[in-house]
């Protein structure tokens, strides 16, 4: 195996291992921490693909942002001695079956697809290119999704403020 492949295998193993731990852990904060590892390993995969911008976005948004918020809300709401209930045997079997079925579906689909090797070398994605395509309304432009997401975020923020205000006035 080449070094490249070894790296891929390591990242894949980390992702799979911590994903399983995330869903099986009975302590909520541990689950959140394992999720953090999954997300960081995913960012590692992006780095492995030389797609640094995406990797950094992954780390900032998911690892640094969303996991922090999740942990923060866990801190606010749960006690250290809280445990999830042990799941009943039947539920475990069913969910395992569902997960395995999903995995098989994904793997077969991927295997059936014939990926064509492209000749083009990995192009270094310049910041200028990213910035311009984000603000572009022509072909390959992302201004519409960008703006729509902004509106969504604005709505979320306003609703958060409204909720916070409501409990205060009571």
């Amino acid at each position: 195996m080449e070094l490249n492949e070894i790296m891929f295998v390591i990242f894949g193993a980390v992702i799979v291992f911590f994903s399983i731990l995330t869903v099986t852990s009975r302590r909520i904060l541990r689950a959140a921490t394992f999720l953090l590892f999954v997300l960081v390993a995913t960012a590692g995969l992006y780095f492995w693909l030389n797609y640094e911008f995406m990797a950094a976005v992954q780390v900032t948004l998911y690892a640094g942002g969303i996991v922090v918020l999740i942990i923060f809300s866990i801190l606010l709401t749960s006690n250290i001695n809280d445990r999830f209930e042990k799941v009943a045997g039947r539920k475990v079997i069913f969910s395992a079956l569902a997960a395995i079925a999903g995995a098989i579906l994904c793997i077969t689909t991927i295997l059936q697809q014939e990926f064509q090797a492209t000749e083009a070398l990995a192009r270094e994605v310049n910041m200028n290119v990213i910035g311009r395509s984000l603000m572009n309304y022509g072909e390959n432009g992302f201004v519409l999704p960008f703006e729509v997401i902004s509106v969504l975020l604005l709505a979320a923020m306003i609703s958060a403020i409204v909720i916070a205000k409501k409990s205060k006035s009571k």
Binding site: V40, G64, V68
Partner: peptide, 9 residues
């Protein structure tokens, strides 16, 4: 900025 934001975790 991205990796240093992980320290808070």
């Amino acid at each position: 900025l991205a990796v240093s934001s992980m320290g808070v975790v």
